[in-house]
């Protein structure tokens, strides 16, 4: 059952990933932003699988954008290399901050990640000489000189990599470790799981992914400012997408990002900022009526279907 579901999503995914290549620059730019949110949602979902809620996505996103931009501006780093640099730098920063923040749990951890994101923004906002302060920084040129197809391909490769990483993660021993931490920390400890180290690793890697996405965003649009790079949307939208698609799965955030990303794009045209209201309504409805999201629901339906095929009764 699970295999059928995974394969179906894989085929649909590859087709969707290739489609914008034949649809012109506008579709490619929408698709790029969908992929961006998709990566944020997947990485957030990996951490939340361990029961730790992070509201710091925008913080690591913005930090990645600034890391990459400043590396290009001051060090003359090639754009692609600056993405790698942002990935490593944000991962290292998250590791260090995690050393402290991960002594907290639940609500306290969530709030401290929110505060961290805000602290990044305030520091960058006020460090005029280095970061450009409230005006931000401009990049000398866009990645691939702003050419649409190569930029889209880069995002597609990064997104495919993130999806593959998440699929590997769900089959590795990390999957058991994080699920057991989420279920019951005392029991997890008693089975020899090093909770602190596991959480630290997951937090660092998922934050690094968020930094990488921020860096590619900066390189696509050619600028960073405190207000745009640390925008709360980068925290809230991935969250809504994951909830809609389905928590604790790889394909949930993918599906959620594609649906909400495209719907949001259209809504933006007709009711500016109205898409945020729609997102809010969707979150409420999903939590009330399908807490396992679309993937959970379709898995259930598929289960029922296969059971009927085999002539088994499904309760």
């Amino acid at each position: 059952m699970k295999k059928t579901l995974n394969r179906t999503f894989l085929i649909i995914g590859v087709l969707l990933l290739a489609a914008p290549l034949f649809m012109g620059p506008y579709a490619q730019s929408v698709a790029r932003s969908v992929l961006m949110y998709l990566m944020l949602a997947i990485s957030w979902n990996m951490l939340v699988s361990s029961g730790q809620l992070s509201f710091g996505i925008a913080g690591f996103f913005g930090l990645g954008g600034y890391a990459s931009t400043l590396a290009i501006v001051y060090l003359g780093m090639p754009p692609i290399l600056s993405l790698v640099f942002a990935f490593i730098l944000v991962g290292a920063a998250a590791w260090l901050l995690g050393l402290v923040a991960l002594r907290l749990r639940g609500m306290y951890f969530a709030i401290s990640t929110l505060a961290l994101a805000e602290i990044f923004r305030v520091i960058i906002h006020n460090w005029h000489g280095f970061t450009g302060g409230p005006n931000g920084k401009l990049l000398p040129k866009l990645i691939f000189d702003g050419a649409s197809v190569p930029t889209y391909l880069l995002m597609a490769v990064l997104a495919a990599g993130t999806i593959a990483f998440s699929m590997w993660f769900r089959r590795s021993k990390f999957h058991f470790a994080v699920t057991s931490i989420r279920d019951n920390e005392i029991a997890a400890m008693s089975t020899g799981i090093n909770i602190y180290k596991t959480l630290l690793m997951v937090f660092a890697v998922t934050s690094a992914v968020q930094g990488l996405v921020g860096a590619s965003f900066a390189n696509m649009y050619g600028f960073v400012t405190p207000e745009s790079s640390f925008n709360m949307n980068y925290t809230l939208l991935p969250l809504a997408m994951t909830l809609l698609g389905g928590l604790y799965t790889t394909w949930g955030p993918v599906l959620g990002a594609v649906l909400l990303g495209i719907v949001g794009e259209y809504l933006k045209l007709y009711i500016p900022y109205g898409h945020l209201i729609v997102y809010g309504i969707i979150i409420v409805l999903v939590i009330l009526f399908m807490p396992n999201g679309i993937v959970g629901l379709s898995g259930k339906l598929l289960n029922g279907f296969e059971a009927r095929k085999k002539g088994e009764v499904q309760l």
Partner: peptide
């Protein structure tokens, strides 16, 4: 074998 809540119910 802890006294209570000893399993991972979602597994």
């Amino acid at each position: 074998v802890p006294q209570e809540r000893e399993l991972f119910p979602a597994m």
